[in-house]
Structure formats: structure tokens, C-alpha cells
Simulated assay, not measured.
Amino acid sequence: MKMSVLPNAQRYKILVIDDNSDHVELIKVYLEPAGNFEVEGAATAAKGLEKAKGDTFDVILLDYRLPDQDGLDVLQEMEKRGIKTPVIFVTGYGDIKIAIEAMKHGAYDYLSKPEIFSPMLPRVLQAVWERFQLQKVALDFEQKLNRAFFGMTEAMAAMVEVKDPYTAGHGEGVAKIAVAIAKEMNLPQRDIDGIRISALLHDIGKIAVPSEILTKPTNLTDLERAAINQHPRYGYEILKKIDFPWPVAEAILQHHERLDGSGYPQGLKGDEIILPARILAVADIADAMSYQRPYRAARGIKAAIEEIKKGSGTLYDSTVVDAWLRSIRTKKGAEKHHSHIPS
């Protein structure tokens, strides 16, 4: 195994769990000039386990004899803690039975003292290379899964547009605005992904509302309005059994709730409304005012700003409103996130 098969720009971290500092230094002197290796030591099992959490190292060299715990116990503890970093177990001369036990407990390979240096580099390289390949495969799979997942979400959102053609593009419009708000609020990318999914699907419950109500060309009756107002609940019922990594169903259930309790369908107030739903509430109004409905004309971005600013702190979360206003403060931002909204 040659170092050239690995990305040259990347440094590979090796953790040596060994109480002999001279031994750690020898490994460092031997490995670091041989490639892009960075060697770090841990003198006890406890310190080694602490450093190993999070799988930030590429390989662990684990000595069998440690002052506070033996290496086999450390391997078992790593398994309990979900540490996946490949471990090369280092045993004393003639400890082949211990080495076999280590392999049974999940060690990737083993080295036997005193002759550990000549086989060390190729075995470390092999472990790093296999880890790199596994990470590459996992990343490729995750990217394909994400593409399929977002594609499925967009297909589900399109079902609403078939049912209510007057709002074609509304889900994508709400998603763009909601993502812009979330970015202004410096939310983690994982949360932003969940908000985008929730926004795309926020009106999925309308597939349970009769088409003649959704597309009625005159004002709605109280009974018809009550039927439409159930769409967040219908959406929740449709999605609640899907194991999303985000509170998608809850956000959809709450996206018409208002801070003062005047929203629907549950009349929630303040912090009872989750943050993704508070973001959707603003994004939904901002985008919806751009669409002509059968019973009213589109109102435009200026009217949306006036409407949302008027409700800031009472109907809408003021932090969310401020983030939205920042996202449209420049002409460039307004064109990017609201290009379809008449002025």
C-alpha cells in the first residue's frame, strides 16, 4: 500500500494509547516522515477513550498493558461507546492468544513486540486506506440518498399543485424564503435541510380538501374556510408516521399558528410553536401574497412587507421577521428569493 493512493493534501491522525512516552515518541519519529501522518499519544486508557470519541482519528495503536485498564477492556469499551476507528492492537512477545482475543473484540490488526516497526507502516497505511474507501462509499451513498429523498419530497409537493393549480410553485417559493430566513438566523445546515423539507410539504394536507373549495372563484363561506383550515391537521396525519430526522409533521401542523393564539388548528401561543413552524409562518405569508387566488388578485412584496411588519411580535416571531427583512434588504436578495412576487 503506497501513500500515493491517498489524498496528498489530507493529514491522517494516529492515536497511540501507550503509557510509555519513549515508545510513543519512537512511533512518531518513525511514522511522521513516512507520509502525511500526525501522531498523538495518550498515556492511559481513560485519556485514550476520551480522545477517541467522535472518531476524529484515522487509526488507533492500542497497547495491551496500560496502568488503569488492559487493552482488551478498552476495545470492549470502544464498542460500547460506538467508536468505529480501526484499532491496531499491540501485544508483548508471545501474546498471540491475546492478539486473537483482540481481533475477536473488533481490532482491525495486531502487532507483536519487539518487532513492531517494520510491519507498522504498511499495516497503518492499509487501515487508513480502507477507512478512506469506506468513508468515500458512505459519502457517495449519502449523496444519492439525499437526492432521492429531496426528489421524493418534490414529487409529493407537486401533488398539491395538481390539486390546486392556482398555487403552482408556492411550495418551492416558501422553501426558498424559509431557507433564506434560516441562513440569516445562522441555523445549522442540518436544521436548514429540515426546514426546506417542511416548506416544500407544508400544504400537503390540501390534497384532502375538495378541489371545488380550493379553486372556488368567489369568496369562501365560513364552512368552506373551516374545511381549508384543517389542511395543517391533514398534513400532519399524512406525514406523522414518516421517521424524518426533523420535526416535519409538527412544523406542518403548526405553520398557521400565531404567537397570540389566534392561529389554527390548535390555537397555540408563543413558545408552544416550534421554531421551524414560526419560520414557515412568515415564509408562507410572504410567498402566498404573490399568488392570484380565484377570489383575489396577487398583492405583491410591498404589501407582504407591510403585513408581516405589522404582525411582528404579535402574530409572527420578531426574530424571524427581522431575518426575513434582512434577506430582502438588498435588491439582489429580493430578486433571488422573491423574483416571482409583483412589486
Rank of each mutant, 00 (worst) to 15 (best):
L145M: 07
V179G: 00
H170I: 08
L139M: 11
G169W: 09
R131K: 15
G151P: 09
F150V: 07
E161I: 09
F149V: 06
F149H: 15
M152H: 12
G151H: 12
A168D: 04
F132G: 01
K144E: 14
K163F: 02
I181F: 01
A182D: 01
L145F: 06
I181D: 00
G169A: 07
K136Q: 15
I181T: 02
K144W: 06
D164V: 09
E130C: 03
R131G: 05
E130N: 11
N146D: 13
F141L: 12
I177P: 00
I177S: 00
I177H: 01
I177M: 07
Q133T: 09
I177V: 15
M152K: 14
A158T: 04
P165T: 09
V174H: 09
F132N: 10
Q135R: 14
R147Q: 14
L145I: 06
K176G: 00
K163Q: 14
Y166K: 12
A175F: 02
E161A: 08
G169R: 13
E154C: 09
G173A: 09
K163D: 01
M159Y: 05
I181R: 00
L145H: 08
V162R: 14
H170L: 15
E142A: 14
V179A: 07
G171C: 09
R147M: 10
F149G: 08
R131V: 02
Q143V: 12
L139R: 12
M156Q: 14
A182K: 01
K144R: 11
A182N: 02
A158M: 13
A148N: 06
E154M: 12
H170D: 03
K144L: 11
Q143S: 08
D140I: 09
A180G: 04
T167E: 02
